[in-house]
């Protein structure tokens, strides 16, 4: 059981990287990006494609791809998604759903339907023993540390910086924020830029840790979404803990029957929605 918990927490680390970007975009502008999971997969494939051409350290790849994601996220929000925002969620949902379908089929056309993984330079096999029959991988630990750092960084940024204040301002009262001189289109674009950076990180880690396949996107989206809801909207630590809960639930399910892991995770999500609709860790401060 101890092993199950450890693996659940490590899986939760990855899921929180999936979830933070979704949480950020919804929190700042009530925007739900259905292509979120597909974008994780895309960044995994971009990493794989680059690594197949040039021999590059996967962590150098992160240093290179995350800034690219920042720029593309900003542009994507500024030129595409900002046009769809409004009281009606329909346009943004249809457009990101359409992009999701395009992304999956395009990836299949380019990379075939087979799952692939990114060579982590042997890191994914590296581990150290905790007990005689149990080892903990170095890569999952790095991912978890990264997730904690990102959660902490986002939460701190929201509470203590001018950019964080701008995010909260457009989220609280968009019109009034604009009266204060904020350009909400630009603030939104910065939120999406950050979300894309997190997505790129998540995609590279996912493809190093296991594999990515062109049609993986939707299930990654659902895991990210479940993490946000389980944790309770409004704080990044909530999202982080929600991801931990989902990771644990899936691992416990897997432990009993390999076919039940995902299903059990979904059930926990539904139970929480039914009995604690504000999530397990609703916002308390800030």
């Amino acid at each position: 059981m101890f092993e199950v918990i450890i693996h659940g927490v490590l899986l939760g680390g990855l899921y929180s990287l999936f979830a933070l970007g979704l949480s950020l975009m919804f929190g700042v502008m009530r925007l739900t990006n259905i292509a979120h999971g597909d974008q994780i997969v895309i960044s995994g494939f971009i990493g794989i494609a680059i690594a197949s051409v040039v021999n590059i350290n996967p962590f150098l790849l992160i240093v290179f791809l995350v800034p690219c994601a920042l720029v593309s996220g900003y542009a994507f929000q500024y030129f595409v998604l900002n046009r769809t925002l409004g009281k009606d969620p329909l346009p943004s949902l249809v457009i990101t759903f359409g992009l999701s379908i395009i992304a999956q089929n395009l990836l299949q056309e380019i990379f075939s339907a087979n799952p692939r993984s990114l060579d982590s330079g042997g890191l994914n096999t590296l581990g150290f023993g905790i007990t005689s029959d149990m080892t903990v991988g170095v890569l999952p630990l790095i991912i978890l540390a990264c997730a904690i750092a990102c959660t902490f960084g986002l939460q701190w940024m929201f509470q203590h910086t001018a950019l964080g204040r701008a995010f909260r301002a457009v989220s609280d009262e968009k019109d009034i924020a604009e009266l204060m001189g904020l350009n909400s289109s630009k603030v939104y674009s910065m939120a999406t830029a950050l979300a894309f950076a997190l997505v790129a990180l998540a995609g590279l880690f996912q493809s190093m840790r296991t594999t990515v396949a062109p049609t993986d996107g939707p299930s990654l989206l659902l895991f990210a979404f479940e993490s946000v809801i389980i944790g309770g909207m409004g704080s990044f630590w909530g999202t982080f803990l929600g991801a931990m809960t989902l990771g644990l639930a899936q691992q416990i399910g897997f432990y009993f029957d390999p076919g039940w892991g995902i299903w059990f995770g979904h059930l926990v999500f539904i139970a929480i929605l039914a009995f604690k609709p504000n999530g397990l860790f609703p916002k308390t401060v800030g």
Binding site: F26, L31, T32, P218, F225
Partner: peptide
């Protein structure tokens, strides 16, 4: 759930 989260919730 509301809006966009209703959409994904129904998917789950």
């Amino acid at each position: 759930l509301n809006g966009g989260y209703f959409a994904i919730g129904t998917w789950v």
